[in-house]
Computed example of a mutant assay.
Amino acid sequence: MLIFLLTMLLINSLIGIWLFTGMFKKRKVFDDRFGMIMAACSGGIISFSISLQLAFLLPLSFSYISLINVIIGGSIGILFGSLVKFQSLLSGYFQGFIGAIMGTMLSAVTQDPSLCNLPIYYEESILHNMYYFSVFGTTLTMLTAYLIKYSMKV
C-alpha cells in the first residue's frame, strides 16, 4: 500500500512538473484569459491529487494534514498563476487552496466514512477505496495535463 501511494504521489508530482515546464516555455504565446484558465485548471487539479495522496500517506491528525496540504496547494496555485500575470497569483492561490481542501476532505471521508454518516463495512473496503481514489486522482491529473497540452497546440 505504501509503495503504491508513493508511486502515485511521484507520478502526480512529475506530471505537474512536466506541465509547468511546458506552460513556462509557451507562456508568451497565449493571452491572459487563456493563461488564467489553464493556470486555474492545472493548479486546482494537481493540488487536489497531491493533497489526496499526502493525506493517505501521512499518519498525522486532520488539522496538521489540512495545514500542510493548504500550504502545498496554495504554493502550487501561485506557481501556476505566476505564468500569466500578477493578477492571476491570487486566482491561482485560491484554485490551489480549494483543490487542496477538496483532496483533504475526500481522503478524510475515504479513511473514515462515518464522518458523513456512511456505513463502515470492513477495513478491506476502506483500503480498496483508497486505491480507487488514488487511481482516480492520477487519472484526472493525466487527463487534465493531456487536455492542457493539446489546447496549447491548437
Score class of each variant (00 low, 15 high):
F4Q: 01
I37Q: 10
S13C: 11
L127H: 06
D112A: 02
V135F: 14
Y64C: 01
M23V: 08
Q95I: 00
F62I: 06
A108V: 01
L79Q: 11
S91H: 09
T21K: 14
S63D: 07
M152Q: 10
I101K: 06
L6Q: 13
T21R: 08
L58P: 10
Q111C: 11
I68M: 08
S47R: 11
F62Y: 09
F56R: 00
S13R: 03
G103E: 00
S61E: 12
I50L: 02
M102R: 03
P119K: 13
S91P: 02
I45H: 04
F133P: 07
L6T: 06
V135W: 04
V135M: 14
A55D: 13
I11H: 06
L54R: 07
I101G: 07
I72L: 15
L57M: 08
L115R: 10
L127K: 13
Y150G: 04
R27M: 12
I78R: 08
T144W: 00
Y131D: 00
L2Q: 08
I78W: 06
F62C: 02
L140Q: 05
I72N: 10
Q95D: 09
C41W: 06
I17A: 15
G44V: 00
S82N: 14
T21F: 06
K28Q: 14
N69C: 15
M152D: 05
